[in-house]
């Protein structure tokens, strides 16, 4: 099926097999490998991207389902001049990543969480990222990073 998808602001039209998952289309079809696959049961969240601004697990959406829509991946989050998004910067500042495999999905989930809840408390952050597994950090510094990004956004707006 021919479909058009805007990824990080660029429009891509391609002939896509109907059973292709969105994550595979992003990785193999469009060639953006920042989004990772960590499981096959929608459990780990490594593949989380933003679909029209909302976080989704891109392993649980068929590419053709999102024909005409807009996706943001980890590669599209920083500013055009390379300035990190406040969530990315907070993850670095608070050592919220180690091996980095869960990181793109975790960052996108956090961006989406803060869009919905600009000022979450620790419990809300933990619940907000519950669908994203990390095996390295014990979540401690991820939670610190998200809380810090929230206050940075608060201060900046």
């Amino acid at each position: 099926m021919e479909m058009t998808l805007t990824v990080n602001g660029t429009s891509h039209t391609a002939d896509v097999e109907p059973r292709t998952l969105l994550v595979h289309h992003i990785r193999e079809g469009i060639g953006l490998t920042g989004t990772n696959v960590g499981c096959d049961t929608t459990s780990c969240g490594a593949c989380t991207v933003l679909l029209d601004g909302q976080s989704i697990k891109s392993c649980t959406v068929l590419a053709v389902q999102v024909d005409g829509q807009s996706v943001t991946t980890i590669e599209g989050l920083a500013g055009a001049d390379g300035t990190m998004h406040p969530v990315q910067a907070a993850f670095r500042e608070h050592h919220g990543l180690q091996c980095g495999y869960c990181t793109p999905g975790m960052v996108m989930a956090a961006v989406s969480l803060l869009a919905e809840q600009p000022n979450p408390d620790e419990r809300a952050v933990r619940e907000g990222i519950e669908g994203n597994l990390c095996r390295c950090t014990g979540y401690h510094n991820i939670v610190q990073a998200v809380l810090s990004a929230a206050s940075a956004q608060e201060g900046g707006s």
Partner: peptide
Amino acid sequence: EDPKLLTSGG
């Protein structure tokens, strides 16, 4: 290590 892991993924 982080800037690359955070902006384009590993």
